[in-house]
Nucleic acid binder design. Structure first.
Length: 283
DNA sequence: ATGTGTTCCTGTCCGC
DNA sequence: TGCGGACAGGAACACA
């Protein structure tokens, strides 16, 4: 579900509720999600102050005063909901736990943060803060697309000679972090590249052109508060609005938006997932 | 190395 | 209105 822009939106929304505040109560309502929760999770969370909320790829990382870091992954359907006292506004009543509310954190500032995840593909874990980079879920993830380690030479070097379709390559978190099905489709549309093309058979110049396009798409989506499909919401309950800017994702059969292109958006399966593209102007 | 398919789950939507 | 099937933002895994 949430890709980098949505996770970044959630992180930003959680900051006023969590950063600088102490976890006063941790209600763990089931043994785990995609993976079992770590041993003694409530005890390890209770009394911990959240120093900082970070993001790495599609993961939210909360550095705690206990020397541990809480890792949160939203999977496909995970949501972080805030209720109660947010940023000095008093709304004392917390709603009763709803279906699929799996973890409930009561913060010292008066906010309640609820991890709701219908499909339970999400995850939570705790690790030593200093060892966060070596956590098994994080250690093989590639560079942040908005960071300095992701650049033209890097992408060209890692795609040279690869027989993998460019769509699958960009979806692989080991190459670059944070891209998912929506944004890969949108990026390849802007680049005019056919998602089925083998990465190694695309010119270095065109591969290089993907770097600024990836950055632009992600930055625009973050600025828009992410994309609200189905039930994705920002932590404050507002909807993101980048979905209104989709050129191809979810637009099967729609007219291509490229000037002068008379094509229509097609949907094809690629490695078990839907790819949306314009066969006429993506080559 | 690179497919592809399956799996983990629940919810929603669409056609009959 | 019910029912079955397809499909959904992720990603690990087994296997050809």
């Amino acid at each position: 579900m949430p890709e980098l822009p949505e996770v970044e939106t959630v992180r930003a929304g959680l900051i006023p509720a969590m950063e600088g505040h102490v976890i006063e109560k941790a209600d763990i309502r089931r043994p785990g999600l995609r993976f079992p929760f770590p041993e003694r999770m409530p005890e390890r969370l209770m009394g911990a102050r959240v120093y900082r909320l970070r993001r790495r790829s599609k993961y939210i990382l909360a550095d705690l005063s206990t020397g541990e870091t809480l890792l949160i992954h939203l999977g496909m359907s995970g949501r972080m909901l805030i209720s109660g006292n947010i940023a000095g506004e008093f709304h004392h009543d917390h709603p009763a736990p709803a279906k699929h509310d799996h973890v409930v954190l009561d913060m010292s500032g008066g906010a309640r943060v609820t991890f709701n995840d219908a499909r339970r593909f999400g995850a939570m874990d705790l690790m030593a803060t200093g060892a966060a980079d070596t956590h098994w879920l994080l250690c093989d993830i590639g560079p942040e697309p908005l960071g300095n380690d992701f650049h033209e030479d890097y992408l060209v070097k890692h795609l040279t000679g690869r027989a993998i379709p460019i769509k699958a390559a960009l979806l692989d978190q080991r190459l670059v972090a944070g891209l998912g099905n929506i944004y890969v489709c949108e990026v390849l549309f802007r680049a005019g590249i056919d998602p089925r093309r083998k990465a190694g058979r695309i010119s270095a110049k065109r591969i290089a052109s993907l770097v600024p396009i990836i950055r632009d798409v992600l930055r625009e989506a973050i600025a828009a508060g992410g994309s609200s499909l189905r039930d994705f919401r920002r932590a404050d309950g507002a909807l993101g609005y980048f979905q209104h800017r989709f050129q191809v994702y979810g637009r099967e059969g729609g007219a291509c938006n490229t000037d002068g292109c008379a094509g229509f958006v097609a949907r094809i399966p690629q490695s078990g997932r839907s790819t949306f593209f314009c066969p006429r102007c993506q080559r």
